[in-house]
Design a protein around this nucleic acid. Structure first.
Lengths: 227, 227
DNA sequence: ACCTGAACACCGTTCAAGT
DNA sequence: ACCTGAACACCGTTCAAGT
């Protein structure tokens, strides 16, 4: 990568990059075992280092958890970007990324679970770790961009100049997608449909709330639900 | 239940009902500490019994967790029933129970978290504990009944004779409500609105997908999205 | 700078007894 | 039937050293 000026690189004790190794092993344990409650000691064991070694790279277990979650969010973002590449129509993009979102979640439930929750769920932590926050924000950004694009194209019933409305629309879509993923992962809901059928039909329903219902009526003046 | 023939009831060692006591204490710890990762030993400590005593009433920690989650679902069901009592219009009921649902979740995030997930999230358990399943099903039943009622009244765009369609509609609404609750609990999304405003506006959006858009077009023949 | 190994204060769970 | 207390195999985290 960069020019190696120093000959005979110092080479730390055992690993070239223990930090990365630990993250990868943790990711592997989560994926294989489908259990995000791995122990720090086990990860160290698999890496062939003492149980103390991880503390040279992570402040505590939660810090490693956060790093793993961040990788999960990066993968999610990349997956969404890949899914929408080549599609032009805004609603088609929305369907594509939501479908991909659910599929990715169901593809690795333990990782998805790790990403959403435990990193801060244990204690009443004030906020999520910065690493997780930024990675999650990037993934969310993909969705928000699509909403904004659709709003500009007049496909969605929200003004591109109304940041709050845009954020709410994105939150609505995300809530439905996230909630569906969670309910299915938790085996709380298991309809007798294939996953794909379910995703397809549900997304059509949920997205219906955002999709402009009667184009002619939405031209101007948002009809306030009378009360 | 049965006639007590024996006088001078034996009275167990310390408690009249240790099982119930343990559940209540666990509930208290979760609520006060806002941390569902309590230790079995701490619960026993608070109850004034040895750390072994709980095993006379619960198979393992997960069994106690399940009992606590079941109480949570019962409270949820009762809250939803109370929220919809006295309302006649189907959509108004739907808004009322969804609003109440989110409020209850946000009111005790740790308990909500406990209910959805960890009881089975740790290991790749095949299914949730029966106790949790039935209690959860009852809470879900409240929502499904409302959907069915609305379908019969012709308020929702689904046939009352189509069980699959009804289940999907319920799943769509539940996904949105559950997902919103989770995202807010996890502090992943925190729009600059009051919780009530957010709930109000979001529900209107999400429910829009289920609400019949153009009554005249929905009379017969579900327009299949061409492809 | 990065690692080891012993140590501490906790866990969940089980065994062998007690009444 | 229900409880106690010791014991086992684990944790996360820290201390005192090693190179």
């Amino acid at each position: 990568m960069s020019a190696r000026i120093r000959p005979t690189e110092p080479r730390p004790y055992h690993h070239g990059d223990l930090r990365r190794t630990l993250i990868e092993i943790a990711l592997q344990v989560v994926t294989e075992e489908q259990d995000w409650t791995f122990s720090l000691r086990e990860v160290a064991r698999r890496a062939g280092v003492s149980h103390r070694a991880p503390y040279n790279h992570f402040a505590d277990k939660l810090d490693l958890l956060a790093a793993v979650a961040a990788v999960g969010f990066e993968r999610l973002r990349d997956g969404l970007l890949r899914a929408m590449s080549g599609i032009d129509e805004s609603e088609a993009i929305l369907v594509a990324i939501c479908t991909t979102y659910v599929r990715l979640g169901l593809g690795n439930p333990a990782l998805y679970r790790l990403m959403f929750g435990p990193a801060l769920s244990a204690t009443g932590t004030e906020d999520r770790p910065p690493l997780v926050r930024s990675a999650g924000a990037e993934a969310r950004g993909v969705l928000e961009d699509v909403i904004l694009r659709g709003a500009r194209a007049g496909v969605f019933d929200v003004s591109p100049d109304d940041p709050r409305g845009l954020a709410l629309a994105a939150l609505a879509v995300w809530s439905g997608t996230h909630g569906l993923t969670m309910l299915v992962i938790d085996r709380i809901s298991r309809p007798d449909l294939t996953v794909d059928e379910m995703i397809e039909r549900l997304l059509r329903m949920v997205l219906g709330g955002v999709r402009r219902a009667r184009p002619e009526a939405a031209m101007r003046g948002k009809a306030k639900a009378g009360k």
